[in-house]
Computed example of a mutant assay.
Amino acid sequence: MSATMHRILIIGGTSGIGEAFARRFHSMGKKVIITGRRRNRLLELQEALQDVDVYAMDIADLAAIPGHLEKLFSSFPDIDTVWVNAGIQYSSDIKDASTSTDTRVIEEVTTNVTAPVILARHIIPRLMQQNNETIFMITSSGLGYVPVGSLFPIYCPTKAFIHDYLVGIRQALKNTNVNVLEIVPPYVGGTELGAEHVSKLKGLIPMPMEEFTDEIFKLLDSSAAIDLKEVAAGSAVPRVEAWRSSIVALVVDV
């Protein structure tokens, strides 16, 4: 599949998994566009990777999303792959209201659910206008399949939503030029997403970032896009397999 990816837009690529994949795609000679909120980090990546393109945008600003995408697709009309990777993860205890705030709940749902749906709404029709095979990907999580709600009562269901949403749009896009992939990571080390929670995850060993990247790329490099659906690594693999071997039998065209 990776051979068919030429111009790749990574929405949320300034750190962690997004940055690791941006660097890997760049090393493969792909044309990469990285977006993120932090202009300084974007400039650092552009300097380090030389010929990548960067674009500052905050997907939590929902009203601005259509304008940003219009600029991106006007500047790079040959975008054939879009990967929505941005996300946030807050830990809280439902028994103690002081461990969270209404603002944090809204922010987590907005970033992890509402923004990806709005992005997809504006991106998919543009990909369908291409005359070649295209790819739309969103990062979910193994926690969307087997939640740890006592620690992440909002994050887990937001990722379960992303999984269900991708199943739905994959059904809708059957027999089109748009392939829908769900990237399903386990607990991966070296990400800003999980840095806040390290002390609460004692005893859990994260999958090293390089190992995770290698495992995902083995699948991307060896499979046709149309044959890939949930692309998982590490401890997320048996979670996805459990869903595929049970619930999926009740679902049409997934």
Rank of each mutant, 00 (worst) to 15 (best):
26 H>Y: 07
35 T>I: 13
83 W>M: 13
82 V>D: 01
23 R>P: 10
72 L>H: 09
58 D>V: 05
63 A>Q: 00
18 G>R: 07
89 Q>R: 09
87 G>Q: 02
70 E>Q: 15
70 E>I: 05
68 H>E: 04
91 S>N: 13
94 I>W: 11
52 V>T: 15
68 H>C: 14
63 A>K: 13
85 N>Y: 01
47 E>Y: 06
80 D>C: 02
22 A>E: 01
45 L>S: 02
36 G>P: 01
74 S>N: 10
19 E>C: 07
32 V>P: 04
27 S>C: 02
43 L>F: 11
17 I>H: 07
49 L>E: 11
65 I>M: 10
94 I>K: 13
13 G>A: 14
68 H>K: 03
34 I>K: 09
32 V>W: 10
80 D>V: 00
34 I>P: 09
51 D>F: 04
77 P>G: 04
73 F>H: 03
60 A>S: 15
95 K>S: 15
66 P>I: 11
87 G>S: 07
93 D>F: 02
65 I>G: 03
94 I>N: 11
50 Q>F: 09
27 S>M: 01
47 E>R: 14
64 A>Y: 09
97 A>H: 12
86 A>C: 06
11 I>E: 11
64 A>F: 12
33 I>W: 00
42 L>F: 12
98 S>R: 08
50 Q>G: 12
31 K>S: 14
75 S>T: 15
64 A>T: 08
39 R>G: 13
19 E>A: 11
33 I>D: 02
54 V>T: 15
51 D>L: 01
24 R>W: 03
68 H>Q: 14
88 I>E: 08
38 R>Y: 09
14 T>Q: 00
24 R>D: 06
98 S>A: 07
86 A>L: 05
18 G>T: 03
47 E>T: 14
91 S>F: 12
30 K>Y: 08
48 A>Y: 02
89 Q>K: 06
31 K>T: 12
25 F>I: 03
37 R>M: 02
36 G>V: 00
64 A>K: 13
58 D>H: 13
62 L>T: 05
96 D>N: 15
78 D>Q: 12
35 T>S: 12
70 E>L: 08
49 L>Q: 10
24 R>V: 03
92 S>Q: 15
17 I>R: 04
28 M>D: 12
46 Q>N: 11
25 F>C: 02
84 V>W: 05
92 S>I: 04
57 M>Y: 03
99 T>S: 06
81 T>Y: 04
61 D>P: 06
24 R>S: 06
26 H>P: 01
31 K>H: 15
47 E>I: 08
97 A>T: 14
43 L>M: 10
61 D>F: 03
14 T>M: 05
13 G>T: 04
35 T>K: 12
40 N>L: 14
62 L>H: 08
43 L>W: 09
33 I>T: 13
44 E>M: 06
19 E>R: 13
25 F>N: 06
89 Q>M: 12
61 D>L: 11
52 V>S: 11
91 S>D: 11
82 V>M: 10
76 F>T: 03
79 I>A: 11
40 N>K: 14
46 Q>M: 09
91 S>G: 15
10 I>A: 04
16 G>T: 09
42 L>A: 07
46 Q>G: 15
62 L>F: 00
30 K>G: 03
70 E>W: 02
13 G>W: 00
